[in-house]
């Protein structure tokens, strides 16, 4: 029983040699592992956590940026499309205007030529009339001269003469 008691008692009585060894071993282990293993490992874990967080938030930001870029692109595209339509419309208008202008000009030209022609014709006509008038005058004078130069005795011969003279007037 003596042995048993001493065994049981030793179970709850710390052995000071073992206390000393435990202290030495544990403190050394704490120093070594703490400084060269656990601190770097914990630090690298924290760093990795931070870098993952950063990467995720950056990805989120990039996604937002892309979305906004896409929106911008669409806006630009829409604007470009509108501008194109505008330009085409303007070009068409201009073309129409040019054509119209050309048409108007041609018409005016034609009208002017027409009126010029009419004026020319009138001028020619007037000139012809004047010439006819001059010719008639000259012939009349000549006739009168002839009439006057002959002896105005005989009536019949006078009349025949007039008729002869009149027939001589060539009104070509």
């Amino acid at each position: 029983m003596l042995l048993l008691e001493s065994s049981a008692f030793s179970l709850v009585t710390p052995d000071w040699g073992l206390v000393a060894w435990t202290t030495i071993i544990f403190l050394l282990l704490w120093l070594l592992l703490g400084k060269y293993a656990f601190k770097p490992i914990a630090k690298s874990l924290e760093d990795r956590q931070n870098s993952i967080d950063d990467a995720l938030s950056q990805a989120e930001k990039a996604r937002e940026e892309i979305a906004s870029l896409k929106a911008d692109n669409e806006k630009i595209l829409r604007e470009a499309r509108e501008e194109r339509a505008q330009i085409i419309k303007e070009a068409k208008d201009q073309a129409k205007r040019i054509v119209d202008e050309a048409n108007d000009k041609a018409k005016d030209e034609i009208a002017k030529k027409h009126s010029d022609a009419i004026a020319e014709i009138n001028n020619q006509k007037m000139a012809a009339i004047m010439e006819v008038k001059n010719m008639i005058g000259a012939e009349t004078v000549k006739l009168a001269e002839n009439v006057l130069s002959r002896e105005l005795s005989d009536k019949s011969s006078q009349e025949a003469f007039i008729a002869q003279e009149v027939s001589k007037i060539n009104l070509n």
Binding site: L4, E5, A8, F9, L11, V12
Partner: peptide, 8 residues
């Protein structure tokens, strides 16, 4: 339990 063990 430990006290009981002590008194064993």
């Amino acid at each position: 339990v430990v006290v009981a063990l002590l008194k064993n």
